[in-house]
């Protein structure tokens, strides 16, 4: 089993930041994902949509990071939403109870309405 790879793209439009990770979020790539989230929150992007359309795998390390981001955003009056999760990622988010905290939307426009 080789090390997972992760690419992250970001865009900000109308005050909403869309973060799109491509690949796997696991213990090896979690620091990279964490840096992207923290950098955006620190620069004032507190309305965040995660576009998971190109995410193949997320472990509890990644879900833990999303949970940390959620708590950080709540503290700053911000919000987050998730869009376009692939079936396997959606399954993991659901059984780890994260979808109870943040809903997963079918498309980015719906997710933007949440934030």
């Amino acid at each position: 089993m080789g090390e997972a790879l992760l690419k992250i793209s970001e865009s900000v439009n109308d005050g909403i930041c869309v973060i799109t990770p491509s690949g796997d979020i696991d213990a090896h790539t979690a620091p990279q994902f964490k840096e992207a989230i923290e950098k955006n929150i620190a620069s004032g992007n507190i309305r965040i949509v995660f576009d998971f359309s190109s995410l193949n795998y997320i472990s509890s390390a990644g879900i833990g990071l999303l949970n940390a981001a959620l708590n950080s955003l709540k503290g700053k009056g911000g919000k987050m939403s998730i869009a376009c999760a692939t079936p396997s990622v959606n399954d993991t988010l659901e059984v780890m109870y994260f979808t109870r905290k943040v809903p997963v939307r079918k498309n980015i426009d719906s997710a933007k309405k949440d934030v």
């Binding site: 213990a27 979690a30 509890s60 390390a61 833990g64 940390a68």
Partner: peptide, 13 residues
């Protein structure tokens, strides 16, 4: 225990 670890450490490497 795996799930609890995930929630407690929140991706802290």
């Amino acid at each position: 225990a795996i799930r609890k670890y995930g929630y407690i450490f929140e991706g802290d490497s």
